[in-house]
Every structure is written in C-alpha cells, then in structure tokens.
C-alpha cells in the first residue's frame, strides 16, 4: 500500500504527460499544465533544499561527535554555512552586501580553482600514463594531437591545413561514432523511462515496503 499509491500517481500522471506531448487539447495544455502542474511544481520545489542542509549538517555534527579523522575542519563547514545564511537572511541578497561579497570572493574563486587543479593532474597523466601500447591507442593519440594543435593559433603556423583536417575529424568520424553511441544511449534511456512509466522499474522509490 505504501508503494502502490505513489506508483499509481507516476503511472496515471505519466500517461497524462504522454497525452500532453501529443495533443494541444485545452484540458491538457491549460487545465493540466498551466493551472495545475506549473504552480504545484513551483510550490513543492523549495523544500528539497532543506534535505541537503539536513543531511550535510548531520554528517558533519556526527563527525565532530565521533572525533572522526579531520573532525576539526567540520567547524569550518558550519562557520561558512551559518555566516552565509545569516548574512543572506539579515543583510539581504543584493549586490554589495556581505552575502554576495562572501559568495563572489570566497566561494567563486575556490570552486573555480578546485576545477583548475585538473589541468595539473592531466599534464602529469599525459607524461606518465598515455602510452601508444596498441594500434588503437596510437590512433586515439594521433587524433587527439591533431585536434589539440588545430585548436590553438599556433596550429595555423605549423600548417594551414591543420584546421581543415581537425574539422574533418570532428565532422565525420567523430560525428559518426558519437551518433552511434548516442542512439544506443537514447534507446537505453527511453527504455528506462518506459519501465518507470509502466511501474516495472521502482528503485527510485527506495527500499522497504
């Protein structure tokens, strides 16, 4: 029972959505979509955020309680979270306030830098791991080198045909392989969606009864 009703909601609602995709009928486009779905989906949206807040807070307070490795740093998590939230709720979210200042000068530089570390790891991997061990790997490396050279202004200086060759690689063999893979993935994801729609796949509802 605890699973049947949610499952029925998905199946019935899902079928209405299928009809919506095909029919321009007033009941579907106006009553179902504009009058029901739009406001309901907005009104139910904000609460999922609290789920993230709860789960991260629980994780870090447990860490501090159990004195898990590096537990001291969990205080920085709480400091960051509480100060930002207070700054936002009390000071407002406008530009020039503490809230935006913290986001722009702390969060943004840090998250951008976090990703830029990958450049170093990749350079190190290029040196230590990319080996032309087989004909397949050699083809991969050659295609990669041609594309890499053609992307940069210097590539034009090496040969003025490089951009044309690289464009051909992207437009022809790359396109064909990506289309083949995409068709496979597309069929797979449609099959999964259908399984959900028909109630065969229910793992998203979680375990238990």
């Amino acid at each position: 029972m605890k699973k049947t009703i949610p499952l029925l909601i998905v199946i019935v609602g899902g079928i209405i959505w299928v009809l919506w995709a095909f029919s321009p009928h007033y009941l579907l486009q106006e009553v179902f979509y504009n009058k029901f779905y739009l406001p309901w989906s907005y009104a139910s949206a904000p609460f999922a955020m609290l789920l993230g807040v709860m789960s991260l807070s629980m994780m870090h307070s447990n860490k501090i309680k159990r004195r898990a490795p590096k537990w001291q740093y969990s205080y920085f998590f709480f400091a960051g979270f509480i100060i930002t939230a207070l700054a936002g709720f009390i000071g407002g979210t406008q530009k020039g306030g503490v809230f935006m200042w913290m986001f722009e000068n702390m969060q943004m530089p840090m998250s951008a830098t976090m990703f830029s570390l990958l450049a170093f790891y990749m350079a190190s991997a290029a040196y230590k791991a990319f080996r032309a061990r087989s004909p397949e790997a050699t083809v991969l490396l050659v295609a990669a080198i041609v594309v890499m050279l053609a992307q940069v202004p210097l590539g034009m200086k090496i040969s003025k045909h490089l951009p044309t060759i690289s464009q051909w690689i992207l437009d022809v063999p790359n396109l064909a392989s990506k289309r083949g893979i995409m068709l496979g993935v597309g069929l797979g994801s449609v099959a999964t969606s259908l399984k959900i729609l028909l109630g065969i796949e229910r793992s998203y509802l979680g375990g238990g009864d």
């Binding site: 955020m49 709480f78 960051g80 979270f81 930002t84 840090m110 998250s111």
Partner: peptide, 13 residues
C-alpha cells in the same frame, strides 16, 4: 570545508 558551507548557505538563502 568553507567552500561546501558557503555554497550550501548561499543555495539555502
């Protein structure tokens, strides 16, 4: 840890 905390606080507000 600060990064995670600020991101979460920002998202919440």
């Amino acid at each position: 840890q600060l990064l995670v905390g600020i991101s979460l606080g920002y998202g919440l507000v």
